[in-house]
Design a protein around this nucleic acid. Sequence first.
RNA 1: GGGUCGUUAGCUCAGCCGGUAGAGCAGUUGGCUUUUAACCAAUUGGUCGAGCGUUCGAAUCGCUCACGACCCA
Length: 504
Amino acid sequence: MSETQNNVPEVDENKIIAERRAKLKALRDIGHSYPNTFRREDSSADLHAKYDEMSKEELEAAEPVRVKVAGRMMLRRIMGKASFATLQDHEGRIQVYVTRDELPEGFYNTQFKKWDLGDIVGAEGYLFKTNTGELSVHVENIELITKSIRPLPDKFHGLQDQEVKYRQRYVDLIVNEESRDTFIMRSKIVQHVRNFLIGKGFMEVETPMMHVIPGGATAKPFNTHHNALDMPLYLRIAPELYLKRLVVGGFEKVFEINRSFRNEGLSTRHNPEFTMVEFYSAYTDYHQLMDYTEELLKELAELTVGSTQVPYQGQVFDFGKPFARLTMKEAILKYNPSAKAEQLDDLESARELAKSLNVHVEESYGLGKVMTEIFEETAEEKLMDPTFITEYPAEVSPLARRNDENPFITDRFELFIGGRELANGFNELNDAEDQAERFKAQVEAKDAGDDEAMHYDEDYITALEHGMPPTAGEGIGIDRLVMLFTDKPTIRDVLLFPHMRPVQ
RNA sequence: GGGUCGUUAGCUCAGCCGGUAGAGCAGUUGGCUUUUAACCAAUUGGUCGAGCGUUCGAAUCGCUCACGACCCA
């Protein structure tokens, strides 16, 4: 532990940084003060879109196209009295051509040539094409807008170190196009999900992220404390119970693209804070939600991959055909040829089946939980193409409505793709008395040592007692969705700032 | 939590049967007016993740720790 921990850290210097600081000092001496006066008028992507098609001769014959560009200098090639430099802006690169004799006396040698890769530069001039056909700006005026003190990673290899990519994402974004593309795609996916739901008549809402009673999922929360009120608070583990309160209130179709927090370990699929979308629709059932989900995911496949065949880590998932729909029991039987349907009818034989399949079950588990464990351990990871699994037992679905014909199960589904759970939806339990019973069972489980079991949320029961219309609701994991459609193996690759242990 | 692998110059990587650390890029100096990972010449730069041990001698062998990656629970 350094004694400077809570103070100004020691400066991490090296020769390159010292040289750049000296250059900055020289700039300050002639009046440079990180100016905010350069007004860019053209983006690299726009210029390429408009003028890449024109030939060198056409550009020369036409009226000169005057442009004003700005960006970070990523490459530079000095050839005596003339130079090329590559400027990178928010969605591309543009090359500029600079000659000594067109700049003010002495500027080229005493200023331009002393700039560094990574500096942010503004340039004005006219478009032309080089002998090799690259659209470029013939510079008549160029200025240093922002001096960069720290050197960039290797201009060709970029930044390879995973740890630095995650800890210093800004560097990763500067030098690795693939990273930029991933997060641009993430933004497009979120936007599409939002537009899809709005198009279906849903209203976007924001509900509390600090909960007095953490609810809506079985998970361990993060604890915090409100000083003025001197009370404990929890970061939400799901927005579900608040969104359903809104349905009680009469907002019949609501959704929230929400950050939720779960106090669990880190893995390639788990980050302590993560994003999902939850949506609730009154007078709708879970079959409708499955249809919505299938429609949405097919659109996302087209948007991101441009095809119904979605490649992921060497495999290809088929989004073209109708998504498979299996009950949990059917899935267990399909992937465990040795199992017989009757074995899932009573607790005793289900336990024996679990044992024969090497699935660990606790003494306290009922039949529903044993079945679910068998499913999760033996079938889940084999569901590659998009597959809905239905008929989840009530025992593992404390917020879902029971099925009318078979009260052992609920009207619920989960969606699996590539062996991973992507979505979870069900007809909402709107019977306040049944919900109170389910909460009681959860509290008993908690008292028995299950620290992920739910709390009893009295106000939520009161809300249901006012009457919630029949409703179906669903949550979709946004991070996993982005992993899938950007072909990324770990959640850290789709989080701008994934959680990391602090450096010593 | 367990196992495997990694951590060397600002970046990308060599070096690992022990003998005082190298390359390319970046930087510095010089040359070059259509280059594009520009090129040519010269040159600076390292507590080899941290600590302990073995040894005449450790980047290299052993142990502990930190951080990361992958696999397993």
